Simulated assay, not measured.
Amino acid sequence: MIIWATMCWICIGFAASMEGLSNTEDWAYQWYSDESFRFQCHISGLNVSQTDYVTWQTPDQRILPNLYNDTEYEVISKDNVNGFELLIKKIHPNVHGVYFCKVYDNQGLARGQTIYGLNIHEAKYHNMLDKYKSQINVAIIASMAFFVKILTICLVCHYQYVTPEMEAKRRQRKTGEPYSVSNDVQMATNGQLADSMASPEWKGAYENPEDFTQF
């Protein structure tokens, strides 16, 4: 990929030098995304006459004749020259690149050509927020995904089932006093037994003479 890109730049540089455009600023333009842009076929040292016509070559190697019109491009006659102007209706990455305009006489013989570039390196931005908007969105989504994972782990740890052994160790860490599961279970058992004996619904044999069988 790097070799291919290098070869493309060499070819573009060679074509520009053939046209006498050694400085990129002379033929390459930068403009805002989602806006329209226009090229006019001005060739240094060539007076384009009304009997001439112009064709345009797009970055994807399409040849656009006069009156061509689709969702991306429109070729417009101007100053009585057929196809003199190319309208790019909406700038997006697919239309970035190098354009050629070629001038022909009424016999179909080529008189000259020139090269234009649009957003060769990157599009123009109104402010820094527009430039890094996609990176900011990616960062926000990644942060939210990470937060959801952390929150899920915390909830699982907080509401997970706690065994008596785990509870005993937790109390020991908090109080610093030795604590055993057997003591905990014994205390719970003794408490249940005491509650049962104190309950009015539970009566022993001595409290219920009618249930006591005398021998």
Rank of each mutant, 00 (worst) to 15 (best):
I3A: 15
I3R: 08
M7C: 14
C11Y: 04
G13W: 10
F14Y: 15
L21A: 04
E25D: 09
A28E: 05
Y29M: 09
Y29H: 02
W31E: 06
Y32T: 07
F39E: 03
C41R: 02
I43M: 00
I43W: 03
V48P: 08
Y53H: 14
W56E: 00
W56Y: 05
T58V: 01
I63D: 00
I63H: 07
Y68Q: 03
Y68C: 03
N69V: 12
D70V: 14
T71D: 05
Y73M: 04
I76E: 00
S77F: 03
D79L: 04
V81T: 09
N82C: 09
F84Q: 00
F84G: 00
K89E: 03
N94K: 05
N94F: 01
V103F: 04
Y104R: 02
N106E: 11
Q107N: 15
G108A: 05
L109K: 14
G112L: 00
I115Q: 07
G117E: 05
L118H: 00
I120Y: 02
H121N: 09
E122P: 08
E122I: 09
E122A: 02
A123D: 04
Y125T: 12
H126R: 09
H126P: 14
D130Y: 11
K131R: 08
S134D: 13
N137F: 11
I140E: 06
I140N: 03
I141P: 02
A142E: 15
F146N: 14
K149P: 10
K149V: 05
I150H: 10
T152W: 12
T152R: 09
I153A: 10
I153P: 15
C154V: 08
Y159E: 12
Y159N: 13
Q160H: 14
P164K: 06
A168L: 10
K169G: 10
R170M: 06
Q172E: 06
R173E: 04
S180E: 13
V185K: 05
M187H: 05
M187K: 03
M187I: 01
A188P: 03
T189V: 08
T189E: 02
A194H: 00
A194D: 02
S196D: 13
S196G: 11
M197Y: 09
M197S: 00
A198F: 14
A198M: 10
P200M: 11
Y206C: 15
Y206N: 12
P209E: 08
E210K: 11
F212W: 14
T213W: 14
T213A: 10
